[in-house]
Amino acid sequence: MTGGGFLARNIAGFTQALESVVVTEDLCHAPGLMQGLDPRIKVVTLMLFIILVGLAQDFTLLIAIFILALLLVLLSKIPIALYLKRLLIFIPIFTAVIAIPALFITPGTPLLSIAGKAVITAQGAHTAGLLIMRVVDSLSLGLLLVFTTPWTKLLQALRWLRLPSLVVDILGMTYRYIYLLLHTANSMFLARQSRTIGGFSGTENRRWLGRALVTTMVKSQYLSEEVYLAMLSRGYQGEIHTLNELTLRRRDFIWMAFALAAISLMVWSIYL
């Protein structure tokens, strides 16, 4: 029976997501370098770095960006183990699996032959390496943003970047209720697990899953109506007004100067 495994797998997934929300929240308020920066500056500079990663065509630059990211992780007091765990899990491994065949099938100059049969080409090694480094770099920069910026500050930055306020409001509220529904779903699975002896058949599990999803959907619909009333009760009239308390400080300008200098230098190195 796969029943027990199915429940355990789902519970593990939900628990992990719940934990990651809590851990991220704690890190965002740690007294580190990036935490102290204005979210608008952070979003813009880190996005520029990520675009730069996309433009980069050689390893030196990609490795330089990786070292910079690593340095920022350390200065922002992000536990390196946690960072590496989030960085290396899934995506780079997945990318490596994707990249390996490219070593062999990319046509080009032979570099190395394994067992006299499969041939790794120089171009193959280059393309696979580029792909993996790019993924690692982009993810590092993304993690830096997420681990050092509370959701509400990120929303303020998006608002400042002229994302329609309706979309920002939806993003803000969605994240808040994801946590609640994760809990709801998790407790449904836990309740089923506690009643499970010997597991259920695949069909039974699928049916139960369908009903669990319907229950969650109905709950989300009910909540949306209630939340609407709660908003209305406190004066909401179709548009959420917010305080904009962001102010630039000296450190923001220092960081911005540094980041822009680094980015210009790197762009210059690409097109030289």
Binding site: P150, W151, T152, L155, G172, M173, Y175, R176, Y177, L180, L223, E226, V227, L229, A230, M231
Partner: peptide, 11 residues
């Protein structure tokens, strides 16, 4: 509201 999860909808 009775349910704080309804009352508290902000980030």
């Amino acid at each position: 509201f009775q349910d704080p999860d309804v009352q508290l909808f902000s980030p």
